[in-house]
């Protein structure tokens, strides 16, 4: 038996509530709210309480899927990224950069969100950047 509790921050929003993730023999369990976290003081909202659920969910996508002729097919990361890059370039060429929009996420790090807006503005050339927390 190997039981560990890993101190971490809820990945869902900018509040940053504290939680311990229990791991028993490699399996993730329901978060334990961190009572010593100065902000959340042992409380979580429903998102924090369910933060572990997707990890082992059988519905979770672990490989890129590309839809061809109405059906999803598994492809490698390189093929998926090449396809996305080619399509983005084509759309920009045909309809201009403001025909594209980029959606960031509270579930990403600051750095990842920074990169996405940088990509939108500096590479693609649009200010159409939004965030899931505004939905």
């Amino acid at each position: 038996m190997n039981y560990r509790t890993v101190l971490t921050i809820c990945p869902y929003c900018g509040c940053g509530c504290g939680m311990y993730l229990p791991v028993l023999d490699g399996c993730l369990g329901r978060p334990i709210p961190d009572k010593t976290h100065p902000l959340s003081q042992g409380r979580l909202c429903i998102k924090g309480w369910s933060a572990h659920e997707h990890v082992a969910s059988k519905d979770r996508l672990t490989k890129p899927l590309v839809k061809t002729q109405g059906e999803f097919k598994e492809v490698g990361w390189d093929a998926a990224l090449d396809l996305v890059a080619a399509r983005l370039l084509k759309i920009r060429e045909q309809h201009g950069p403001d025909s594209l929009a980029f959606l960031c996420s509270a579930k990403c790090t600051n750095e990842e969100n920074f990169l996405l807006q940088k990509f939108a503005r500096a590479v693609i050339g649009t200010n159409n950047v939004d965030h899931c927390a505004r939905l």
Binding site: R4, Y20, P22, I32, K35, T36, H37
Partner: peptide, 29 residues
């Protein structure tokens, strides 16, 4: 790391980190 949470102690060498507060319910763990 300045925080307190449930932990399984496996070795007597780690016991200086054992504390009693704040109170967490242990039964579910």
């Amino acid at each position: 790391h300045g925080h307190v949470g449930p932990h399984v102690f496996n070795s007597a060498d780690d016991l200086t980190a054992l504390v009693l507060e704040p109170r967490y319910g242990m039964a579910l763990v």
